[in-house]
Computed example of a mutant assay.
Amino acid sequence: MQRIETIKNIAESGVVAVIRAESKEQGIKIIEAVKKGGIKALEITMTVPGAVDIIKELCEKYKDEDVIIGAGTVLDPETARACILAGAKYIVSPSLNIETVKLCNRYRVPVMPGVMTVKEAVEALELGAEVIKVFPGNAFGPSIISAFRGPLPQGNFMPTGGVNLNNVKDWIKAGAVAVGTGGDLTKGAKTGDYDLITETAAKFIEEVKMARAK
């Protein structure tokens, strides 16, 4: 049931914050700013120094709060297992790695494998992925979601890469169940402007709500 609840919460939120940082300290500051802006789903990428430790720390810190901590840029089952044991509630990969999907299914943890083709999307569905990551989204544009959903209306697609405030509505209207956003959301960290991250996070949530309302 926890797996289903996690997927439901991510879909309802509509936005997954992809957290990349140069250090653990910066990563935590970004996470706090994003959370303050109202985004509940936080994807800590394995490119962040000490990512697994950060996941463990955050899962303990927010265990009584309405926050969903997951792991991103997970390339293999070994890393997926380490993240799951640290408390990650979902796993996101940039590509479709069959053994990683199997591992996550074994632990009943949602996994979002990355795809670029219909063939990969079908394979992901056959493996039991409830949400499929379309990556890199900026290589296609929002029309790729409606294109995928033509032959695969049963698929839940989440674009990541190139999703920003100017086009997030287009992604949602094209049929995306949620969007993943990183650089456009957290760019304030480069100058230490974490208030900008909070403001941007709130705007993303609002844009998704408006797109769904129309």
Rank of each mutant, 00 (worst) to 15 (best):
I19D: 04
E57N: 12
P49W: 14
E60Q: 15
I19R: 01
A17L: 08
M46R: 10
D66R: 14
E32Q: 15
K63S: 15
G38Y: 01
A17N: 11
G38N: 08
V48H: 00
D53P: 00
I39V: 05
K36Q: 10
G14S: 03
G50W: 15
V18I: 12
V34T: 08
V52D: 06
E43T: 01
R20V: 05
I31D: 02
K63P: 09
V34S: 07
I44L: 12
E43G: 01
Q26F: 06
I44P: 07
E22I: 08
I69D: 13
K56Y: 12
L58W: 04
G27I: 08
E43R: 00
V18P: 09
A41L: 14
K40Q: 11
I69R: 14
E65A: 02
S23W: 09
E22A: 07
R20M: 06
E22C: 06
V52R: 11
E22Q: 14
K24E: 03
D64W: 09
I68H: 09
L58S: 03
V48A: 03
V34D: 06
V18C: 10
Y62K: 10
S23A: 03
E57F: 13
K56W: 13
E32H: 13
V15L: 08
I55P: 01
E57Y: 15
G50I: 11
I19F: 01
P49V: 09
I31C: 05
I54Q: 00
V16Q: 06
G50D: 07
V48T: 07
I69H: 13
K63T: 14
L58F: 06
L42Q: 10
A21L: 05
A17I: 09
S23E: 03
I30A: 02
R20C: 07
E57P: 05
Y62C: 04
I55A: 02
V67E: 13
I44Y: 02
K29M: 11
V18A: 09
E22R: 13
A51E: 03
K35W: 12
I44H: 04
G38K: 09
V67R: 14
M46G: 03
G27R: 02
T45L: 01
I31K: 06
G14T: 03
D64Y: 08
I55M: 03
A33P: 06
K63A: 13
A51C: 03
E57T: 12
R20D: 07
K40G: 05
I39R: 04
A51F: 06
L42N: 04
G27E: 04
R20T: 05
E43M: 00
P49F: 12
L58Q: 05
